[in-house]
């Protein structure tokens, strides 16, 4: 029975061996198998092709396939590191690994930096920060005048851009996060520690034992 499932799974595009994924991430083999259950659920919600399309990601996040959101787009793009427009299983597990409570803080800090570096310049530019604050205001009930938004961005930049060159580089970002650790709070998902309870995997457990 295990062999049958094993052969079947290898034919799924983007499927990767849980033991390899577990060796490269903070997850155990059982947790990777549980993540596969979650992955299957999300990746079959609209198009059942074993890949997570952006609409499926939006549906899983917002319960609405058409809800666009700048930050969800950025997360999707970072998960899709092959940049082929879909999230494969290996990409899903490796990316979520950063959000594991036991993942190195340095990985979380770097991931957040890449997330906010909207134009992939290697810096968080003032314009990008302004754009992100506007995007946040757009999705919330918080109404702030343009002047106030400018002041918030200016104040944050004066605190974070210690070299004063009008942009935040990775070193400045690391220093800024070390002074404001709450900034990467959303880079940790406690759920990932209980993933085997939330998504028990019965089929794959017959294949591999921890």
């Amino acid at each position: 029975m295990g062999c049958f499932h094993s052969k079947h799974l290898r034919q799924i595009p983007g499927y990767e061996d849980p033991t390899i994924l577990a060796s490269e991430t903070p997850f155990t083999v059982s947790e990777v198998e549980a993540l596969y259950e979650l992955f299957k659920k999300i990746s079959s919600s609209i198009i059942d092709d074993g890949l997570i399309h952006k609409e499926e990601f939006q549906l899983a996040l917002f319960r609405n396939r058409n809800r666009r959101n700048l930050f969800a787009d950025r997360i999707f793009d970072l998960f899709d590191y092959k940049r082929n427009g879909v999230i494969e299983f290996g990409e899903f597990v490796r990316s979520l690994g950063v959000f594991h409570p036991n993942a190195p803080t340095a990985d979380k800090v770097t991931f957040a930096f890449r997330l906010y570096d909207l134009r992939h310049t290697g810096y968080i530019e003032r314009e990008e920060l302004y754009e992100m604050v506007l995007a946040l205001l757009n999705e919330s009930d918080l109404a702030l005048s343009d002047d106030v938004v400018e002041m918030i961005v200016d104040k944050t930049f004066s605190d974070a851009d210690t070299k004063g060159d009008g942009r935040i580089d990775l070193d400045e970002w690391k220093e800024f996060v070390s002074k404001n650790p709450s900034l990467i709070k959303n880079m940790t998902l406690p759920y990932l520690k209980d993933i085997t309870l939330a998504f028990p995997s019965f089929v794959l457990n017959t294949e591999v034992e921890d």
Binding site: L61, V133, K155, A160, N180
Partner: peptide, 26 residues
């Protein structure tokens, strides 16, 4: 905090798009 003393990154980290916990809701 008054708006001008808010940290812009603190503000944007509250975005629903960055809250991946909803992926795990059944």
């Amino acid at each position: 905090a008054t708006p001008v003393t808010m940290n812009a990154f603190e503000l944007i980290s509250k975005s629903q798009g960055l809250n991946l916990s909803s992926l795990f809701e059944k």
